[in-house]
Nucleic acid binder design. Structure first.
Length: 422
RNA sequence: GGGGGAAUGUCCCGAGCGGCAAAGGGGGCGGACUGUAAAUCCGCUGGCUAAGCCUUCGUAGGUUCGAGUCCUACUUCCCCCA
């Protein structure tokens, strides 16, 4: 009832694609779900928290699954956790998470919707995506009614046997009541979505398995049709790091929070061992093409990385932005020329006239956090102005340093910013 | 309700006789080597108008020339007994 049986051959485009590309970790009923998908009436959802102001790469896997669902004739339902976010998922355990103001949650929702719109077609058609918010029903729940109508269907015995719960108890770790309830709310979402949209499957990361199955169980007891669970593997890079975390923070999917150029760079810098996997998971390229690319060895794999970066960036920021990012990268890394499309920071002309200290300049460019850090980077030989290393921290930038109206500041080999006078 | 612990550099873990900008990791950043990769080695990892000054060890007071370290109260978390 979890991993795919040996002799299982998916008949539906949906499952076949997902399995071939490595999106599938567990499923409650491969045959059953396959049949639904083949019949063309698969409506499935994935829940998203509204805690962050936008979506980041960590969400991408789920988004891609929804996109494939739509492309193979199903109806995707991204569920906003506007209600559950108000409770706060306690899994982190150390601190009770700050409650977000309702306006913030709404703003987050709006921003997230914009990102979804790039991957999914929304509307009223059969396979058009819809984006409900569980605040619509959760916030109206009355505790007593909920206990009578829904709560009585939860088997505590059963919940106790779930991995997430069992592990905590065995290790003598605290499991709060709210956490126990979080599971119930999520289960209830599933049933509610079935009633409202005829949703029959819930997908999510492998850590969601228990919660999803609890929903299926609740559905059976409350008389829904058979529901299904489908989970995807937890993503890490080959070296074990969590996907999508960089020094600068999360890898956001919105241009205002992370420039398309930096987004392109994120993919370009993928580890060799990840390229094939990422191409399967984060692009729509046909499998033949991917197999050809991942077979490249040695330095040739860089070509595959560029294609990965192009495709992944195009999905989020559009072809044009992707092409521009690629061109900027080509000039910067392969020709060593300052492309005028590099990220740019403007400085009032008056400051140039007065003479701008190098350390300050790097801080203003956002390459370092403080002059102290800039000083240290100078000692380590990490800073360059117009491609020549800074060796004197007292140096001053003047008009004469401008090349075509800009000064190129670099931190290390990969981070460059153009400073322009305004 | 009673008793006992714990909170440290705003990324995390974690040492810290009353002289502390505070050991050691992890992570991150930079350098070398490469292919804008990995692995490996080296350096850095409070702020500033920088041989000086300022701000940091849960919060607020106190003792002291001097407090992360001692005292008091408070907050939060954990453990044991009921």
């Amino acid at each position: 009832m979890s991993a795919a049986p040996q002799n299982f051959r998916p008949q539906s485009d949906f499952l076949a694609t997902l399995m071939e590309r490595g999106y599938v970790h567990q499923c409650s009923d491969f045959e059953g779900l396959d049949a639904k998908a083949r019949a063309g009436d698969l409506i499935a959802y994935i829940g998203f928290d509204c805690t962050a102001p936008s979506l980041h790469v960590g969400h991408l896997l789920s988004i891609m699954i929804l996109a494939w669902l739509q492309r193979t004739g199903g109806k995707p339902v991204p569920l906003m956790g506007g209600g559950t976010t108000r409770v706060g998922d306690p899994s982190g355990k150390d601190e009770t998470r700050k409650l977000l103001p309702v306006e913030t949650i709404d703003a987050n929702k709006a921003a997230m919707r914009k990102v979804f719109a790039k991957f999914l077609q929304f509307g009223d058609g059969k396979t058009d995506a819809v984006m409900p918010d569980n605040a619509e029903w959760l916030t109206r729940l009355n505790y007593i009614d909920f206990l009578r109508d829904v709560g009585r269907h939860f088997s505590v015995n059963r919940m106790m046997s779930m991995d997430s719960v069992k592990l905590r108890l065995e290790r003598d770790q605290e499991l709060s009541f709210i956490e126990f309830n979080y599971m119930c709310l999520q289960a209830y979402d599933f049933v509610e979505l079935n009633k409202r949209y005829g949703c029959i499957a819930q997908m999510g990361g492998s850590d969601q398995w228990g919660n999803i199955v609890t929903g299926i169980d609740l559905g059976r007891r409350m008389g829904t049709p058979q529901l299904f669970a489908l989970t995807s593997p937890l993503l890490t890079t080959s070296s074990g790091a969590k996907m999508g975390k960089t020094a600068a923070g999360a890898v956001w999917l919105e241009a205002g929070m992370l420039s398309p150029y930096d987004y392109w760079q994120f993919w370009r810098n993928a580890e060799d061992a990840d390229v094939g996997r990422f191409l399967r998971l984060f692009t729509f390229l046909p499998m033949d093409e991917i197999r050809r690319l991942e077979a490249l060895g040695g330095a040739e794999i860089n070509d595959a990385k560029k294609i990965l970066a192009n495709e992944a960036t195009a999905l989020v920021h559009g072809r044009e932005a992707a092409g521009q990012a690629a061109e900027t990268a080509r000039k910067t890394f392969e020709e060593g020329v300052a492309a005028d499309t590099l990220p740019t920071v403007e400085i009032p002309a008056a400051e140039f006239d007065a003479g701008l200290g190098v350390l300050t300049a790097f801080v203003r460019a956002g390459l370092v956090a403080s002059t102290g850090e800039a000083r240290r980077q100078v000692k380590g030989g990490g800073l360059r102005v117009n491609d020549s290393a800074v060796d004197d921290e007292r140096a001053v930038l003047r008009d004469g340093d401008l090349r075509d109206g800009a000064i190129k500041l670099s931190l290390g080999k990969k981070k460059h910013v153009l400073l322009k006078a305004k």
